[in-house]
Design a protein around this nucleic acid. Structure first.
Length: 579
RNA sequence: GCCGACUUAGCUCAAUUGGCAGAGCAACUGAUUUGUAAUCAGUAGGUUGUAGGUUCAGGUCCUAUAGUCGGCACCA
């Protein structure tokens, strides 16, 4: 997927297209007042105040038509530079533009405007020379958006669109949007019976048998890899007393989003994070400098009261399982440990065919705790570790947590969409609050450095991402049902089919026999639509020669194998964890 | 939470200006006895999300409410 904002040519084109949109809206809705219309990674938008009138999805066609008309007319886009006073009088009827002018940087002595035909907009530019150049665009959606992005302000209407300089690129983009719709994990989750939602529990997903197979595979894989990496595992309680959350600082910051209850007149809260429980485990025993780094993992189920409007399938839920771990270490171990962690994360993502970019989020300008010097050291350590692991990282200034800087992993899926999953966070807060210590070589107590980290982020969300990434066509090792065994005749070949299933069971292959009284083609079709990776057809020929005939999902060719060949081929593929 | 749209059978969707709730797939029963993407016939399946209201009459109009979706805000 092309990032419009980062492509200089398309950036300008989309910016001009935003003006074209505003002009068309002004023609159709003369009362319209305009806020801003910036370029974003997948196109542009314009925030508009239409008074009491509402633009609906079906109105977009009409607006697009008007845009096409204006573009065809082919007016030039002309830049003027005016003084602040001129600007104030020129836009005196538009409170939003006045607000922009009044809040302009004092260094900006000249204000620029762009005029195209009967429409003039305040703008820094640059723009294309003529609206004629705007040919391949599409308006995509409408929504509300708070003025200045502030929820205490009124809502404006936002129209989104995208513009390309070639027709094929627009088609490609629209194709990807269609494809994403087809791969929607909510749709596939229902069709493949992976999970369900109920109005009795908004934001609380139910995992169905197929989804549980997938989930258990992921969790087992997680435990296995973490064991290899020297992690130990814990399970901490789902509910702990309010005092603990006060100690950790969560009560102060997030009590609004925590589910609470009373036990024997004492306040409790369901955990929104696993860390405080993890801190108690650390404090349960004395630690020597020799034991560090100490890596403690927990697949911990947390609950957070997310705003109703934020909920979205498995992507945003009110309960989810973090593949959490806390690492306690000495200061001299930071870089080495993080390098090791980056390599680990790299290995895990590679298994799913997911590439990624790392971003380093640094100290927030105002809201942060701890010494400046410690922050600088921590940020430098994260960046150095990144480079030592052979990875680039983009700096995200001021985006760190108040308690420490972090590395975020942004995954690219098979449709080119980006998901933030993994994160490595340095925490300079909790070790202090919980008074964590270890005994150093000189016998004195020292404060350990602590990392929080996740790789999947949330198991639920990661499953959602995988569903869309694979389009429901899971690689063999992840597929809930790996094989369907289809006897050509539902009775005559049943016994042989059962023999094959016993063989599958013996080797841990997840198979089912489809011996329904239906034609072969019908059962093949159903296995294909259910996205089962392997279809095994057995009939007269296979029985006689003790073979199986395999057909892979999405293919029309089939291949006949001896039973040994079959077992070896399948085992190898599952073992290699790739397609 | 805010803006907007949507909610009819397990799933996907019909139902003219308000006038008898319907189809395909799936399920079930029977016939058929099957060699690589849908064999045929039949049966059953609904308080049209929920609660009110307007009307001779509401799936359709109005009000409230819940949920879902697209965004916004939020995301430890």
């Amino acid at each position: 997927m092309i990032n419009i904002k980062e492509n200089e040519r398309l950036n300008v084109l989309n910016h001009s297209c935003a003006h074209l949109l505003a002009q068309a809206v002004k023609h159709l809705y003369p009362q319209a007042k305009f806020w801003v219309g910036p370029v974003i990674s997948d196109g542009f938008y314009y925030d508009i105040d239409l008074g009491n009138e509402v633009i609906r999805e079906e109105d977009l066609e009409k607006i697009e038509k008007e845009m096409k008309k204006i573009a065809k007319d082919g007016k030039r886009i002309v830049r003027h530079e005016i003084s602040k006073d001129e600007a104030l009088s020129m836009f005196q009827d538009d409170p939003y533009k006045l607000d922009l002018i009044n809040h302009m940087d004092e260094h900006e002595t000249v204000i620029s405007c762009y005029t195209q035909g009967d429409f003039t907009d305040l703008c820094r530019g640059p723009h294309v020379e003529s609206v004629k150049q705007l040919k391949y665009f599409k308006l995509l959606k409408v929504s509300g958006a708070y003025w200045k992005g502030d929820a205490s302000n009124q809502m404006l209407q936002r129209i989104y669109g995208i513009c390309f300089d070639q027709e094929e690129d627009l088609k490609e983009h629209l194709y990807l949007l269609e494809e994403a719709k087809k791969r929607d994990h909510k749709k596939l989750g229902r069709e493949l019976e992976l999970f369900m939602m109920s109005e009795y529990g908004p934001g609380f997903p139910f995992f169905l048998p197929n989804g549980m197979i997938l989930r258990n595979i992921l969790e087992n894989y997680w435990y296995q890899e973490h064991t290899r990496e020297g992690y130990q595992f814990i399970k901490t309680p789902i509910m702990l007393s309010k005092e603990l959350w006060e100690l950790s600082g969560h009560w102060e910051n997030y009590s609004e989003n925590m589910y609470t209850t009373k036990i024997d007149d004492r306040d409790f809260a369901i955990k929104p994070m696993n860390c405080p429980g993890g801190m108690l485990v650390y404090k349960n025993s004395l630690h020597s400098y020799k034991d560090l780094p100490l890596r403690i993992g927990e697949l911990g189920q947390v609950h957070r009261h997310e705003a109703s409007g934020a909920l979205n399938g498995l992507f945003r839920v009110r309960t989810f399982t973090q593949d959490d771990a806390h690492i306690f270490m000495r200061e001299d171990q930071i870089e080495e440990e993080i390098v090791r962690l980056i390599r680990f994360i790299d290995r895990v993502y590679a298994v799913f065919g997911l590439t990624y970019n790392i971003e380093l989020s640094t100290r927030p300008e105002k809201k942060y705790i701890g010494e400046l010097e410690v922050w600088n050291k921590a940020e430098a350590a994260l960046e150095a570790a990144c480079h030592a692991a052979g990875k680039d990282c983009k700096i995200n200034p001021g985006d760190g947590a108040f308690y420490g800087p972090k590395l975020d992993f942004h995954l690219n899926d098979s449709l080119g969409r980006v998901w933030q999953c993994g994160t490595i966070q340095l925490d300079m807060n909790l070790p202090e609050r919980f008074d964590l210590t270890y005994v150093d070589s000189d016998g004195t107590k020292k404060r350990p450095i602590m990392l929080h980290r996740v790789i999947f982020g949330s198991i639920e969300r990661f499953i959602g991402i995988l569903i869309e990434h694979y389009g429901g066509n899971f690689p063999l090792w992840l597929a809930p049902q790996q094989m369907t065994i289809i006897p050509v005749h539902h009775q005559e070949h049943l016994e042989y089919a059962q023999k094959i299933q016993a063989l599958c069971e013996e080797h841990g292959f997840r198979s089912k026999i489809d011996a329904r009284n239906e034609k072969l083609g019908y059962r093949i079709r159903e296995a294909q639509t259910k996205k089962i990776p392997v279809q095994i057809v057995v009939g007269e020929g296979e029985m006689d020669h003790q073979t199986v005939t395999l057909r892979r999902h999405g293919q029309t060719q089939s291949v006949t194998l001896t039973l040994d060949e079959f077992v070896e081929k399948m085992s190898l593929e599952i073992e290699s964890k790739v397609r």
